[in-house]
């Protein structure tokens, strides 16, 4: 018995076979858990002798998260604000460094290596230890008593957070290794002739950055924005993550799932907004 499949069907089948591994993995470790966690979010889970017992509680967990729980809303807000603060900073910083590295100069390879070093060093446990030892930020700003010097000029209520942000800039910089590389790759794909033509027409470097570099980097900016957002979920100092894990360790499974879903919805709203903005920006240029 021999099947004769048409070329088309055969092509489909081969494709499905190649991706089958992922389809199984997606269903087992993403789709089903996602569905289950939604189910748990509306249930109270109790560990009994014959496994987990779920009783329906409706929106109770979601209401609790915002009304009774004192820690969650504040942690959520601070996580989201730091996301909004850090992602643009990372992007600006990464473009800046990538442009510095994009020139031809002696020792370029070494510098590229250095700028990527924090990706290896300062993720996870090591940075946590550094943090607890006070080695997580360069003491440039606090060291020289800038606070005392500037106190007379700028009101302390503004100055203190400002200096804190500047000090935490170093951590932001260390988070931008991968983004620098992606921008660098994007910059190298831009043909030099474009800049030469612009120069002949009398464009200043500033103008040619905004008219050539920036629009052509748009896809990389989107990629990097997404990557930075995703990176911030799994960062060691993500307060929401820590909190959900601590709730989870207390065996409040239903509540932890509900918190997970609240976070998920907010993150997806942000990502959706990012996609929307970029789509408009990119279609403007046609």
């Amino acid at each position: 018995m021999k099947f004769r499949l048409s070329m088309r069907i055969r092509h489909f089948l081969e494709g499905y076979i190649f991706i089958s591994l992922w389809v199984i993995g997606f269903s087992a470790f993403m789709a089903i858990p996602l569905g289950r966690s939604l189910y748990y979010a509306f249930h109270e889970l109790n560990v009994t002798s014959d496994g987990l017992k779920a009783t329906y509680v409706g929106w109770k967990h979601f209401q609790e998260a915002f009304t009774i729980d004192v820690k969650f809303p504040s942690r959520l807000i601070s996580t989201i604000t730091s996301l909004f603060l850090e992602v643009p900073l990372i992007l600006i910083f990464a473009i800046f460094i990538a442009m510095l590295l994009n020139r031809q100069f002696i020792g370029r390879g070494i510098f590229r290596g250095i700028f990527f070093l924090p990706v290896i060093v300062s993720s996870g446990a090591v940075l946590q230890r550094l943090q607890s030892d006070g080695g997580d930020s360069l003491p440039i700003f606090s060291q020289y008593n800038l606070f005392d010097v500037l106190r007379n000029v700028i009101p302390p209520e503004i100055l203190r957070p400002l200096l804190d942000v500047l000090d935490s800039l170093t951590v932001v910089m260390w988070d931008s290794g991968v983004q620098i590389l992606i921008f660098l790759a994007g910059l190298q794909a831009i043909s030099v002739q474009l800049y030469e033509a612009a120069k002949c027409d009398g464009a200043t470097p500033w103008e040619s950055f905004w008219k050539i570099t920036f629009p052509l980097l748009m896809p990389m900016i989107l990629v990097n924005t997404l990557f930075s957002i995703v990176n911030s979920f799994t960062k060691r100092d993500n307060l929401v993550m820590e909190y959900i894990q601590s709730v989870f360790k207390l065996s409040k499974f239903g509540y932890a799932s509900a918190l997970g879903w609240i976070y998920f919805i907010i993150i997806f709203a942000i990502i959706g907004a990012v996609f929307y903005i970029f789509r408009n920006k990119m279609s403007e240029r046609g």
Binding site: F26, A28, F29, M30, I32, P33, L34, R36, S37, Y40, L52, L226, I229, V230, F233, T234, V240, M241, I244, Q245, F248, F253, A256, S257, L259, G260, W261, Y263, F264, I267, F268, I271
Partner: peptide
């Protein structure tokens, strides 16, 4: 989508599984 889902969301069912 899988890349964008925060791991926090599926922690509980994954652990149980």
């Amino acid at each position: 989508f899988t890349f964008l889902v925060p791991p926090q969301t599926i922690v509980v069912p994954l652990f149980i599984l």
